[in-house]
Design a binder for these strands. Structure first.
Length: 230
DNA sequence: GCATTAATTCTGT
DNA sequence: ACAGAATTAATGC
């Protein structure tokens, strides 16, 4: 049953899927890999001759400038697939893939993807498309938001979307991590979060942010007029 | 295993 | 850019 209110779908820069059982049939065709926290998984220019199904942990996908600046594009959690865009397009990786939380993943060779998954598993083919589409939506949403919305609105949408995507009100992200994701100066993020905190929308915990009034954030996003002024 | 110290990260000014 | 607090990693016992 649907709610009486239509809820707006927000594409949060956090790609993960709860349902992974469809992969069970082909897991034996891949092999397990694990990446420790803070390690680099792939760098720009690396060949993409396989894809990875992430089973646990969190990866960060970032674009980097020559002088070391990094802009996070999105985070990837369990159920998401890494490397399919590069592999299908026969291009090297464009991005820096690093490990935020220690990961376990299954690697599937291009041969397995082409000859087994695409050929004999339509439900998994669809998964790959959904995964790719998610990345596409995330990036376009970010462009739109940064073009049309204020910082508090962008942060509000980000927090709201992330809560829905994660099914949790606990968001284990530092101000700096959020700033990198949204393309906002870190201090601006800190100040905006303080505002939200004073307005009773959230609390800061030892390891990130805890949303206390998700409805207020939802309302704030929709009318675009915060009850928050400085 | 436990306590100290050194390093790094985080956040407000 | 800087400083104080807070985490985390490293070291020695």
């Amino acid at each position: 049953m649907d709610q009486d209110t239509k809820k707006e779908v927000l594409d949060a820069p956090w790609i993960a899927f709860d349902e992974q059982s469809e992969w069970d049939a082909v897991l034996h065709l891949g092999h397990k890999v694990s990446w420790p926290r803070k390690s680099t998984v792939r760098s720009p220019g690396d060949e993409a001759k396989s894809i990875f199904l992430i089973r646990s942990g969190v990866l960060k996908v970032a674009a980097g400038s020559r002088d070391g600046l990094l802009r996070t594009l999105w985070l990837m959690g369990p159920g998401s697939v890494l490397g399919e865009a590069a592999m299908f397009s026969d291009k090297p990786y464009h991005h820096h893939i690093t490990v935020v939380e220690a990961c376990e993943a299954y690697e599937f060779s291009k041969k397995v993807v082409m000859e087994e998954i695409l050929a004999h598993h339509p439900e998994l083919s669809r998964r790959l498309l959904v995964n790719l589409a998610s990345k596409s939506y995330v990036t376009s949403t970010q462009v739109e938001d940064s073009a049309f919305l204020t910082v508090p609105q962008r942060l509000g949408r980000f927090l709201y979307g992330l809560c829905l995507a994660r099914h949790s009100l606990q968001l284990p992200l530092s101000h700096a991590a959020i700033a990198e994701l949204l393309g906002i100066h870190r201090v601006t993020v800190s100040n905006t979060i303080s505002m939200f905190k004073k307005a009773g929308l959230l609390d800061e915990t030892a390891h990130g942010i805890s949303i206390t009034d998700i409805n207020a954030i939802a309302a704030f996003i929709n009318d675009g007029h915060p009850s928050i002024h400085h």
